[in-house]
């Protein structure tokens, strides 16, 4: 008699239960996102009724008088994020180019060649190993918790840049960006630390974008007698431009929502200033600072602020994802 049998009813039930549960959890994860958005919106509705859109243009935050406005926070969020983005993009894209266009491995190989070790079983692997190490080190930047960056910012970055900042203020104080002295926390230290935090995001996504440029285009450029940088500037960067832009937009989304480093470094002052050295506040920092001790009334207002932050980050992130999708579609054409 054969030992082959049709599946038992237990096996059938287990199978059915399995399929059903994957289905259920798939739905659950969608429902969770919907629930998060709805819950924050729901909690924000009373405050929205009370303060309306004037909340967004108001400039005071006073729990005693019940007057609330988040224009300074929106200003501070955009200012710090854009500044960080500027710095982070320059460094992040540089790192990506350095890693993808073989500067490191090529350079180390040339060095090894000079001492005739390039095919040594141990030393010969050094170019790849160093490139791998550098990639991991940059990724390590992303692994350090933001609260640790905040701590480092307070005790290392602020003392380090304060003399420079105050010198700039004294010498060039007429220039709006240097309009105030740096007394401690402020926009510049916050943005610097924020730039460090988004650098790995920009570097990683840019690296993917540059790697996605087909090698035959590099060959074409070099075959046309382009120098390395002519190939990078005229062919590789333009071809990966959409992907690089997507990286920048996603990093912008990160920067907008980043909380701790800003709550610790930006100074939490309800002011609007163009000065790099002025203290400021951001939406996320406002939530972090006011939520723990908020009364029932203030919680509603904070939920409203959270909704604004949610809307901004959601839009930026969706735009970023759409751009990246577009980029990969474009590159399929080139392939």
């Amino acid at each position: 008699m054969s030992i082959s049998q049709p599946p038992t009813s237990g096996q059938r039930t287990a199978n059915k239960a399995f399929r059903l549960s994957t289905f259920a959890f798939a739905w659950l994860s969608v429902a969770l996102v919907v629930y998060i958005v709805c819950m924050i919106t729901w909690e924000a509705i009373p405050a929205f009724r009370e303060h309306g859109l004037g909340f967004i243009t108001g400039t005071t935050w006073d729990a005693n008088t019940g007057e609330y406005g988040i224009l300074p926070e929106i200003w501070g969020t955009l200012y710090s994020s854009l500044l960080a983005l500027l710095i982070g993009t320059v460094f992040g894209v540089s790192v990506a180019i350095f890693l993808t266009e073989g500067f490191l491995s090529g350079g180390v190989f040339a060095l090894l060649k000079a001492v005739h070790l390039q095919y040594h079983p141990l030393w010969g692997r050094l170019p790849e190993q160093l490139e791998h190490l550098l990639k991991n080190l940059v990724e390590l930047l992303a692994a350090i918790p933001s609260v640790v960056y905040g701590l480092w910012g307070i005790f290392v970055v602020i003392p380090m840049i304060r003399p420079v900042a105050n010198y700039l203020h004294e010498a060039l104080g007429w220039f709006p960006a240097f309009g105030t002295p740096l007394s401690g926390p402020g926009l510049l230290p916050a943005s610097l630390v924020l730039a460090i935090m988004i650098l790995p995001t920009i570097a990683a996504i840019s690296r993917d974008a540059l790697n996605a440029v087909p090698n035959k285009l590099r060959e074409a450029a070099y075959g046309m007698a382009a120098t390395r940088w002519e190939a990078i500037l005229y062919v590789i960067l333009p071809t990966s431009a959409t992907g690089l832009f997507g990286a920048v937009v996603l990093a912008f989304g990160r920067a907008l929502g980043e909380t701790m480093a800003l709550a610790m470094l930006v100074g939490n002052a309800n002011v609007i200033s163009v000065s790099l050295f002025s203290p400021a506040n951001t939406l996320a920092a406002l939530l972090a600072n006011n939520f723990p001790e908020a009364g029932q009334k203030e919680v509603g207002v904070l939920m409203y602020a959270a909704l604004v932050l949610l809307a901004i980050t959601l839009i930026v992130n969706i735009i970023g994802a759409a751009i990246l999708q577009r980029a990969s579609k474009n590159l399929e054409e080139v392939r």
Binding site: M39, L250, G253, R254, L256
Partner: peptide, 22 residues
Amino acid sequence: VRFCGKVLTGFPSILAGVFAYG
């Protein structure tokens, strides 16, 4: 679901706190 996953990847951590608070 994948779209929701991507949205959550870029979700500001403070808003996760706001959600859990509510």
